[in-house]
Every structure is written in C-alpha cells, then in structure tokens.
Nucleic acid binder design. Structure first.
Lengths: 177, 177
DNA sequence: ATAATCTATTTTACTAGTAAAATAGATGTG
DNA sequence: CACATCTATTTTACTAGTAAAATAGATTAT
C-alpha cells in the first residue's frame, strides 16, 4: 500500500478520535490536494491550550481572580525577587498596558506592592505581599495536581519524550522572536 | 545519583534552553517542595500556543481579518456544507455572541452568507461565498507552510510520536468536557 | 550644563469577547 | 389547541486587552 493510499485510507475511514482527527478528515475531503498533516501537532497544541485555559479560568473564578492576574502572581512567586513591570510584561506575553491594569487591580486587593527603583526613577518594581504569597501557596498546587491528572495517561517515559519534543518546537519558535 | 539529586542538579545548573526550562528553574528555587514537572508539558503547550497565535495574527493583518474570523472561515471551508451558527460556536470554542459578531462582519464583507433553515426557523446556516472560498484557498496554504517550517526540526517519526502523545492528552481533556 | 533623544510606565481611546436578557421559533402536555 | 417550556440566535451592557499618545525620568552629544 502506498504512502498516499494509506493516508487517504486513514483520513476517510478511521473513526475520529479527537477534534483534530475530525478536522483533518474534513480538510482531506474538502481540499484533498493540501498536506494538512501539520495540524496533527499544531492543531492539537492550540486545542489543548484553549481547553486548559478555559479550565483554569473556571477553577480561578471562586478566588475572584483572572487567569492573567494569576499568571502575574505566579511570575512574581517563582522569580524570588521584585520584577520590573517590563520583566512581567515579557514573561506573561501581554502588553505593557495590560501589566499596568493587572498590577493596579492586584495592588488594590493587597496581593502585590509597587516599589520605586533606587537606580532608575522610571522603573516600577512589583513584588508579592504576604497575602499574595499565601494565595499562590494555597492555589498553585491545585493547578499542578490538575495538570498531573491530565498527564496521568502517559508513562513517565512518554511524558519525558513529549516534553523533549515540545522543547524542540518551542525553541524553534522562540529564536524567531 | 538519586532521582532527586539529578532533578536538583538539572534545575540549578543546566543552562535553560527555553522559557519553560527557565520557569521550572525558578520554581525549583522558590518552592523546592513542589513537583512542577507537569509544566514541562503543559507550560510548553501554553507557550507554543501563545506564540503561534501572535504569529497568525501578525500574518493575517494584511488581509484585514482577525484570527477568530479566519478560524470561522476555515471551519466552514473544511466542513463541506453550510453549518449552523451553533455548530460554528462549538468548533471555534468561542461564545455564541462572538459567532454572531464575527458572522456579521464576514457577511458585510461578502465572505460568508446567512441562510435560513427550512427545517427550523430559529436556525441560521452559515456558508462561504465564492470570495470566502477564494480567501481561504489563497491564505490557508501559507499557514500550513509556516507550521511545516516550525516542525522542520523534527523527523517524520518524531512528528508522528508527538502527534500521538498530544492526541492522548487531547482525548483525556475532551472527555472531561 | 543643556538640548535632543531614548526608555519605562501610565493613560486614553478603542476593539474583541462575554454573560445575561431579549427575541422568536419549536416542542411537549393536558 | 393553548399554554408552558425549551432551544437557537441576537442584542445589550459590560470587561479585558491593545495601540498609540502622554508622562516622566535617564542618557548622549556637544
């Protein structure tokens, strides 16, 4: 059986297993001349990312905190030192304006503090308050547990392989800015 | 060397290779008691998803079309039949309100058409116009090429393994809604 | 030193996305 | 058949995120 006929066979007759299998099957019928195999990886990364984002937002709702605010808190928690607003912006992949807004809200709630920099009067340093640390300590482990559960179908070896292959893709993307 | 000491060694002394390696190293120092290994997979999926989303938005800007509008067009293109607004909502993972807005704008630009359903007067069917098909035919292959390029560092075998492992994770997520 | 330029953050004005209410059509029950 | 209930979409009112302008402090060149 040729590569092509195996491919066609798979697309048309295999039971779709997840959203991306179904999408690929759709493209195979609608645009049979296109090689859409890359969506097997990129489409799933998108899909998983979107589903996990929804789940995180749902889980954070009782804390009355958004996903991006939580991301900001976690960025500070793992950095071990006060960060400049611009460092937080780089780490969270949001705009500087968004960092200002998130920091405003978190500061009003007493979860972070703004400090001036001695070296440079333009710079604002952000750091967690005791309450901010407490919130991260209380909630972050739950998200780790959720993620562990999600990966529970994989063996340790499979997890390591998956992480290694994703690192390759991530590095390829990060060098292109 | 014990599992733990290897882990600590890796976290503290290995050169970080990508954003997630650096984040994991941060957590290892700030909260050494937490097992954050799941971010090797979940963090990278998030990161890659965010970077790819930015890139797609950048590439679509000259067409004056947003990523979600493009997603709607592609959903129709690969379905081979007019879709209900609610089917589009399910496929794109956005709200129904968002489907209405995106459909409005695309219909105003003549890229899709709204049809009534004969069976059910509440239902609106969305389908591509000739212009909509032309836009997808013109631009979608560029995105496939971009994705191929991104995966060019992987062998065909590695791509298949990566896709298979991601399918496992995706199915695990999709069964939980 | 001082004017010009550069940089970090905030403010402003706007857009995309959402939840909940409104609308309109379908379905089930007595 | 009417009446209540359910469902699909749209409208409304609002929030989060952004680009670009504004602000304020630092740096460079003369």
């Amino acid at each position: 059986m040729s590569v092509l006929s195996r491919l066609v066979h798979m697309d048309l007759f295999a039971a779709p297993e997840d959203f991306v299998d179904a999408a690929r099957q759709g493209w195979a019928q609608a645009r049979p001349e296109l090689d859409v195999s890359s969506i097997e990886v990129m489409g799933r990364i998108n899909r998983i990312g979107a589903l996990v984002t929804q789940r995180v937002e749902h889980d954070l709702a009782p804390e009355d905190i958004t996903r991006t605010e939580f991301d900001l808190l976690c960025t500070l928690a793992r950095s071990g030192r006060p960060l400049r607003a611009s460092e937080v912006t780089a780490a969270t992949m949001l705009s500087g304006a968004s960092t200002t807004k998130n920091a405003d809200r978190l500061a009003r709630r007493g979860l972070i503090e703004r400090l001036p920099s001695e070296r440079d009067g333009r710079v604002v340093l952000l750091q967690l308050t005791a309450d901010g640390h407490a919130l991260v300590d209380r909630t972050f482990p739950n998200f780790l547990a959720r993620d562990q559960e999600l990966l529970s179908g994989l063996t340790p070896r499979e997890r390591a392989v998956l992480a290694g292959l994703l690192r390759k893709v991530a590095m390829n993307l990060e060098v292109r800015h």
